[in-house]
Design a protein around this nucleic acid. Structure first.
Length: 319
DNA sequence: CAGGCGTGGCT
DNA sequence: TAGCCAAGCCT
């Protein structure tokens, strides 16, 4: 249904919306899908300024992506983080022959596409009249309906309740922009909000109290020694195979151990890398001893490999 | 279902 | 500045 709040929202969107986002007016399901995956847990600015265009330049179509290697895709993803997204994007390109499916049911079965992304692709690429539910929309819903906490199920119900099914596309875009520009997590600009009069939190005068903040968990610190084995201007790396940074290349880490530091190893420096679930403090050493299970590569070769931020810092120490 | 999963922007 | 948190997904 189309209500007065929707009229206010659309008017606000026409005037203040982010109409220059390159994926916004695309009808190509491929580019919209790539943008949606890149934007998972990632700010618009980062994707927009550094990753979206170069990626599509290298892989302009689904067919190009499918024809690439996983390492080439990871290299394009280097620096963006959450690399499982890159591997899932590649996997999906192998799976679907011509184009992404259109139904939410089918989309959600593809690797890396959950309920939120499936709705977004359906809404933006295929103009399916369904609401989307991202972090921006969630924050608006919490405040608009005056809820301190809500389950995913409840949030979807609220998303459908507020939805404007007469202008679904514009409504969805408007909601994301409103959440990003006005109903912000640390500063709510209610005076500029088209929902101000209908919004429960705004009427209570305390929008920032919603939603209820989660208890902060302390992040563990891991201390490691990283050893760069070298021989004749080549350095030993291997491709990571665990869940963490899977597929990226890197130097070898060891539990911090005085024995390592003592021998003939020379310390190059140290790095700090803050991951979402732990912080890494590592001393970096160089060793001229031979090592098994690695590839000895020149700096030129190393720079062509997909590397994590921490390993890039170490490569910089070598140059 | 809580935690693993990267990196950088913003306050 | 240090910490929060950003167009989530998977296990």
């Amino acid at each position: 249904m189309h209500k007065p709040v929707h009229t206010n929202l659309l008017r606000w969107y026409e005037q203040y919306g982010r109409h220059n986002l390159p994926w916004r007016h695309s009808r190509d399901s491929y580019t919209i899908w790539i943008s949606e995956i890149m934007l998972q847990q990632t700010q618009v600015t980062t994707v927009l300024e550094r990753f979206y265009t170069p990626f599509l330049q290298q892989f302009p179509t689904l067919r190009d992506l499918a024809a690439a290697t996983e390492e080439e895709v990871l290299k394009q993803w280097e620096g963006l983080g959450y690399y499982t997204r890159a591997r899932n994007v590649y996997k999906t390109a192998q799976l679907v022959e011509h184009a992404l499916p259109q139904s939410i049911h089918e989309l959600i079965q593809l690797p890396g596409i959950g309920k939120s992304t499936a709705h977004a692709i359906a809404a933006f690429a295929y103009r399916t009249p369904v609401p989307i539910l991202d972090a921006n929309v969630k924050r608006i819903l919490y405040r608009f309906f005056g809820k301190k906490k809500a389950s995913e199920r409840e949030l979807w119900a609220l998303a459908y309740r507020l939805f404007d099914d007469e202008h679904p596309f514009e409504y969805n875009q408007a909601m994301m922009d409103l959440g990003s520009l006005v109903c912000r997590s640390k500063e709510a600009l209610c005076v500029h909000c088209p929902f101000e009069m209908q919004c429960h939190a705004a009427q209570q005068g305390a929008p920032l109290e919603l939603p209820e903040k989660k208890a902060v968990k302390s992040v563990p610190i891991r201390y490691k020694d990283i050893v760069v084995f070298t021989c004749k201007n080549r350095y030993a790396l291997k491709q990571r195979s665990g869940r963490f940074l899977h597929g990226l290349w890197g130097f070898s880490e060891y539990e911090q151990n005085r024995d390592n530091a003592e021998g003939q190893m020379q310390q190059l420096g140290s790095i700090v890398q803050k991951y979402s679930h732990f912080h890494l403090y590592a001393d970096v050493y160089i060793s001229y001893e031979p090592v098994e299970g690695h590839e000895y590569l020149t700096l030129e070769e190393i720079n062509k490999l997909p590397l994590s931020k921490a390993d890039i810092k170490i490569v910089k120490m070598l140059t």
